[in-house]
Amino acid sequence: MQFFWHIVAMICMSIPNILGFNLIFGKGKIFHFGPIGVSTVATYGVFVPLMHGFSYPSAIAIGFVLTMIISLLFAWLALRLEPDAFGVMAIAIHLSLLAVVINWISLTRGTRGLPDIPRFFFLQTTQSFALFTFIIALLWILFLFVLHRGSFGRSLDALAEQLWYAGSLGIDRRWVTVIAFLIGGLGALITNVIYCQYVFLVHPSDLNFPVFIFFVMVVVAGKPGSVPGVLCSLILLTLLREGMRFLPIPSEFIGSLRLLLFGLILFVAVWVRRDTLFPKARSV
């Protein structure tokens, strides 16, 4: 039963971050390859101040401001760079941020991470985590579902299909892009504030490149831009990831096997969706 609550908590706490990423990358078709860069800032932005004596509300407020700033930076770059250049730049920013947190040992303790992360008073058991994250996930799904189906979602769809056509109707690309990135940033903040409490630890290995591959895999396999599809994909792939622990193979091989399997799933998902994954270039 404990494992069931653990799975529920893991899935539900990932939902804000994954659906935020799906809004930008899946629905907006913006080559945002830096969601884990945003997560890095969100995580360290909250827990470094917390470990240096700030209260939870103050630390979360600091983390919120820093997350919005990095989200605005990504939005600004997405508006100014060509899509592929932005993709490369986003990866570069993520890796640079990771290098900073690994090497700024006096502040972040580097690869040793920040241990003994205190939990909210109402999150002392796996069961309470599962219940709390379930409520948060439900609210977030509802929020994003309304957003996807409403005028904001249609504007994002229009911009994803053809920028000039959308612009000629009066759709403000800057406004829509900035809002999408800020929502993505908020999702990253919610997920990471909960996750680090759950594992009592902030560690750079939770913010490295394979985590981004998992994000892309979930969105691509679930159908980019689809909230129900991405949710199903997240549930199945989390079950697969967590279920692999029970395979009768030595534990040191499980990590490598998981990466191989995820790589294969991503390859197949991209292959299947190769015609619809990204917008086709259309002349005016």
């Binding site: 769809d157 000629s168 005016v284």
Partner: peptide, 13 residues
């Protein structure tokens, strides 16, 4: 308002 040469509508909508 602009009407485009290659049909400025959103085909996926």
């Amino acid at each position: 308002g602009r009407v485009f040469q290659n049909f400025g509508i959103f085909r996926e909508m």
